[in-house]
Every structure is written in structure tokens, then in C-alpha cells.
Design a protein around this nucleic acid. Structure first.
Lengths: 137, 137
DNA sequence: CTCCAAATGCAAATAAGTTGCATTTGGTAT
DNA sequence: ATACCAAATGCAACTTATTTGCATTTGGAG
């Protein structure tokens, strides 16, 4: 972890090392800034604002990926891990994961045409689940 | 507009008709709840909370589509309109639209396999733009 | 024309994230 | 080793988008 941070041009602080470790433990399951704060605050006494600021730096350096959620919060996972996307019912908020992610190839061609270094993406599909569609009207 | 609202099982109020009109005028360019509030408040005196509550109802009935943004806000457009997606630089926040949307076909097959009535999706790609990548380190 | 569930307005609350500023610290240069 | 400074942190106050409780109004079915 320490090496990864330094190679990315960031200081390897106690707080950041703890954050990276916690994210690694999630094995690709993204967690919110608040959850990350709770898990690292107990170990290091880190402040909430530091968690937010570090997540921004880590994302800018390509070490973590961020996905925005409908409730206005965001969640984070270590970059480059296997992941899937969610289909959410706009009525009951239930979510169902959909198999596979169609972007590994697509990102390459988009990066090539725009000159961007591709880091990640957010994708969420919305619809009405069978149960809600059945209810009233 | 009145007919569309009634057909969806919603009351055709002065406020909602104004909202639908404003959204229609945007021709597929999504606007925030706040922008919609500003544009409709002057005409109808509608309250912010009504705008938010109506947007939720309109989305649930499939009349509008919502896309979440990284700053924690969301934006809305009339459902079923032509749209594209954004590629954003995580350093300077500059965005570049990418051509076409790969989901018109994909949504059908996902709907078929999950039983959901598909309404829309959020997709945002992130990366580092050529200018930022060139700067320092 | 009546009626009531749905919709609205108002005001207060919440949740997530941000910012200013004083202090500390990692790691490079001496 | 030691000093040094930009980067990182802690703390507290703030902002912004959105939500909620509750009393009042209203669209549209009967």
C-alpha cells in the first residue's frame, strides 16, 4: 500500500494506508465515504474531512474508483477490480445486479478517440420491478 | 401535457404542467431540480418541495428520466429523448460528450431477463484529460 | 355539486460533502 | 542525522441538495 501511494505521487500517511487497506478488504464491493470513515476512524482517529479529501486525491491518481448513487451519496472501491452494475426500481428502491460490465473494451476506444486516460465509470439502470408494476394501476 | 399526466395516473396540476413544458423546451438537455424550480416558480409560484416531489412522481411513472451527477445533485429530462453521455476529467472537472448511447438495445435484453419495465439509465465515464495528464508528474 | 385522496405550501430538519485556518508530518535536501 | 517545507491533517463552521411533518387546497371521479 505504501509503495502504491508513493508511486502515485502521494504521501504514505497512516490514515491513507488504513483507507487503502479497508478498501482492499472489500474485494471490489464499493463502500461509502461514511463507512470508510467509520472503519478507519476507530484505528487511526482520522477526521471525516480527511477521508473526503484523501478519496479525491486517490481518485485523481487513479487508485480508487468512485460511483455516484441516487441518494446523493457516492461509494468507492479500489481501481481496476472486477465489478458489476445495478438495476434499481424507482418505486421501491430495490436493486438487482446485472451480469457483467460492458465497458472494458468500450473504454479503450473512448480513451483513444478523446485522449483521456480512462479511470472508470458510473452506470446505473432504472426501471420498475415486476412486483411494483403489478401493484395498483 | 395534461393528457400525458392523466394517462400516467397523475393529476394535471398547474404546477406539473408548467414543469413538463419547461422540460420539453430543453429538447433533451437535462436540467437540475433547482433550475426547474427557478423557471416554474416565476410562472406558478410553485414551492421547491413540490418540484422535488413532482419529479419523483414523474420519474416513477416513466415521464421523466433522472441522471445523478458527481456534485451530489441530479438532473432531469423528458423520458425517451435522444441523449448522450459525458466523459469527465477527475482533475479539472471538464466534461466531453461521447457520441451515441450504447443502451437502447441493451435495455431491452436486460428488461427481458429481469422482468423490469426499463425506464432509463445513468452513465458517466471518468478519466484524466490530455491537458491535466500533461501537467506536473 | 360534493367529496376525498392527491397534491401543495410553508417551515424546519437532515445528510453529504466542503472550506478556512492553524497545526502536524512525510520525505527530500543538506 | 537534522532541518525544512509542501503536503496532509484536525477541527469547527458552513453550504447545498433534498426531505419531512403538517395544515390547507384542489383536481376530477361519481
Amino acid at each position: 500500500m505504501e509503495q502504491r501511494l508513493k508511486k502515485a505521487g502521494l504521501k504514505a500517511t497512516r490514515q491513507r494506508i488504513a483507507m487503502m487497506r479497508v478498501l482492499a478488504e472489500q474485494k471490489g464491493h464499493a463502500i461509502t465515504a461514511e463507512e470508510l470513515y467509520e472503519k478507519t476512524h476507530s484505528q487511526t482517529g482520522v477526521d471525516r474531512s480527511t477521508v473526503y479529501r484523501s478519496l479525491t486525491s486517490l481518485e485523481e491518481r487513479g487508485l480508487v474508483e468512485r460511483m455516484d448513487r441516487r441518494d446523493g451519496s457516492a461509494c468507492y472501491c479500489l481501481a481496476g477490480q472486477e465489478h458489476s452494475h445495478l438495476l434499481m426500481c424507482v418505486r421501491c428502491q430495490k436493486t438487482v445486479p446485472i451480469a457483467g460490465c460492458p465497458f472494458h473494451q468500450m473504454e479503450e476506444s473512448i480513451g483513444a478517440s478523446t485522449g483521456f486516460v480512462m479511470l472508470g465509470h458510473t452506470l446505473e439502470l432504472t426501471g420498475i420491478c415486476p412486483e411494483c408494476a403489478a401493484k395498483h394501476c
